[in-house]
Design a protein around this nucleic acid. Structure first.
Lengths: 224, 224
DNA sequence: GCGTAATTTAATGTATACGTTATCCCATAC
DNA sequence: GTATGGGATAACGTATACATTAAATTACGC
């Protein structure tokens, strides 16, 4: 009856389902949910739900508050700032490491492709596809850095700010400048310019951070 | 009969107990342990053990391998390097943020105290107490940076490399230079020199990284 | 009506039961 | 001796039972 495989255990399924529900907003930030409710919703007993929520708590997506249910975490502007500061630092480091990697043009192809994709998305003013390409760019950048810890942390933080980014996607100006920065970063990595890559990406992220925080303050969005 | 309080739930107790057992070496790196074994050892049922091991897995201290028990993770020299690279980056960032904080002498007292403690430990050649003061120094530094994410990540990584550091503590030369660096960093923070603080700490950590990796390679320690 | 104590409710923490199945062991075939 | 297959074992995943206790509700005295 039950699947024993780690990939398809109810616990694993619960982790993924709850993550999706959080990202989609079905479990809105700031709302509370009892174990029973989640169990019923996902058609399983409380046992896998409990294991899943403990894992998601460790990942910073929710908070277990005994007798009040799990609370989907909200992010204040201050939280956002903290996260962006760390992302800026670690991705810049990643950019430097990627440049140090002396990759060939062929190896950098996926990175270049994501830049091209962003440029074409920008021409059609298609923000959604631009965002998707942007995510690929950042993922690829971190992958090229070859440090699994950096990858794990940035992935986790990107999960945490995903909602905020989606929210502001349509509120901010078309990211023309952002694209120029991506291209410049690509060039720096391609020519193995570690310091340059670091600096370019650092400024890129700083800009992104300021834009995001600016919008959140403008909209008076205290929590997201 | 059971304690319901989050602080003293069996799950929480299991998390802390298992952590201690790992740090003390009672659960040695690379060894496997069945849920039943752990449950019996900690005098509780498998339920809290399972929840605890999932959390510890998310924290990177062990790996759940169905039917083979949980494996206490070992760290290769490469893992160590990855972790130190990230620690270097984030703690340097913390040092810069601490300097930017423009703290008063009074507020910096704990930091200074840990430097003084290290210096006196060094005079008695007491490595253990030096290491304890060193840990206080780094904790305080990160605290002063005022970014809870940096604190969480560095704390987690320090946990992961704790065994390795303890192992090499008596193999490396007395950290005279390290102490000079701590003092210099303190001065930089005290005078609000953000760039200087960053640079000093970066070099400090780089030295620590190279020393550690050097020793591990010298001793031919592939895993720890 | 209001504050406090008693009572009920229900969410949780934990133990336990049990079905499933990976793994091990051995018998048999070659 | 090696390989294959079947059966036993036991570790795990999950559901469920149940005691505990925080929170909600009611009862009560003033």
């Amino acid at each position: 009856m039950q699947e024993n495989d780690r990939q398809t255990s109810r616990t694993q399924l619960a982790v993924e389902s709850i993550r999706s529900l959080i990202f989609s907003g079905d479990l809105a930030a700031g709302t509370d949910h009892l174990e029973n409710e989640l169990a019923e919703r996902l058609s399983m007993s409380r046992t896998p739900i409990r294991e899943a929520t403990r894992v998601l708590e460790a990942q910073g997506l929710l908070e277990v508050r005994p007798r009040k249910g799990v609370r989907i975490l909200t992010l204040s502007a201050e939280d956002m700032n903290e996260i962006y500061v760390v992302l800026t630092e670690l991705e810049s480091l990643a950019a430097g490491l990627a440049a140090r990697g002396k990759y060939s043009k062929a190896q950098l192809k996926p990175l270049l492709q994501s830049v091209l994709d962003m440029e074409s998305s920008l021409q059609c003013k298609d923000r959604e596809s631009w965002a998707a390409a942007d995510e690929r760019f950042h993922d690829e950048l971190v992958r090229l850095a070859g440090n699994s810890r950096i990858a794990a942390i940035t992935s986790n933080f990107n999960d945490q700010v995903r909602r905020a980014r989606a929210f502001t996607l349509h509120l901010r100006p078309l990211p023309v400048k952002s694209n120029e920065e991506h291209r410049a970063l690509f060039e720096a990595i391609a020519r193995g310019d570690e310091k340059g890559a670091r600096k370019i990406h650092w400024r890129h992220r700083e800009n992104a951070r300021k834009t995001l925080i600016g919008i959140l303050e403008e909209v008076g969005m205290k929590h997201l």
